[in-house]
Design a protein around this nucleic acid. Structure first.
Length: 146
DNA sequence: GCCAACGTTGGC
DNA sequence: GCCAACGTTGGC
């Protein structure tokens, strides 16, 4: 699997918008920003599986509880610069585009085809996989082409 | 602000 | 390796 060639993978990244929200991410521009601070093995392992070019939803937890934009992995994992603990590393993400309409957690819960979303069934996982079908459904709800 | 769910830690 | 205690997340 490689950027531009192999299979595209999809993900979802959660952040509390008062700490790090979509506007912060957009302000970083093409340079992107480390998705640091993850201290959970499952979330970290998901990041380890990412390649440059993978796409992700940007979700606002706690405040809003909605998917607001699309990000792209622009650097594969390396040590999380906010800790010396070698267990934790992170990818770099850049904002790609906003959804035309935010897609809320509630929208996802009632939408046929999203019953198995990790967002709904494992709400505490901060970096989670999204299936192609889920990606397409949510892009549709968000008013953009997948 | 509450609390259920879940992940991590550390004593044994 | 088990499991009780503890801390955190995040929806409500």
């Amino acid at each position: 699997m490689e950027a531009g060639g192999g299979l595209m993978a999809y993900w979802l990244f959660k952040s509390e918008p008062d700490v790090w929200g979509w506007p912060h991410q957009v302000a970083r521009g093409a340079a992107g920003e480390e998705w640091h601070g993850v201290r959970n093995y499952q979330a970290r392992n998901n990041m380890r599986a990412m390649v440059v070019g993978d796409q992700g939803f940007f979700y606002h937890s706690n405040i809003g509880k909605e998917i607001v934009g699309i990000v792209e992995v622009c650097r594969t994992v390396q040590q999380d610069s906010t800790t010396d603990d070698p267990r934790w590393d992170c990818v770099m993400l850049r904002a790609v585009r906003p959804l035309l309409r935010a897609v809320s957690l509630e929208d996802c819960k009632v939408q046929p085809g999203l019953e198995k979303m990790v967002l709904i069934n494992n709400s505490r996982l901060s970096v989670q996989p999204v299936t192609v079908d889920e990606w397409q459904i949510i892009c549709g709800l968000g008013g953009i082409d997948p």
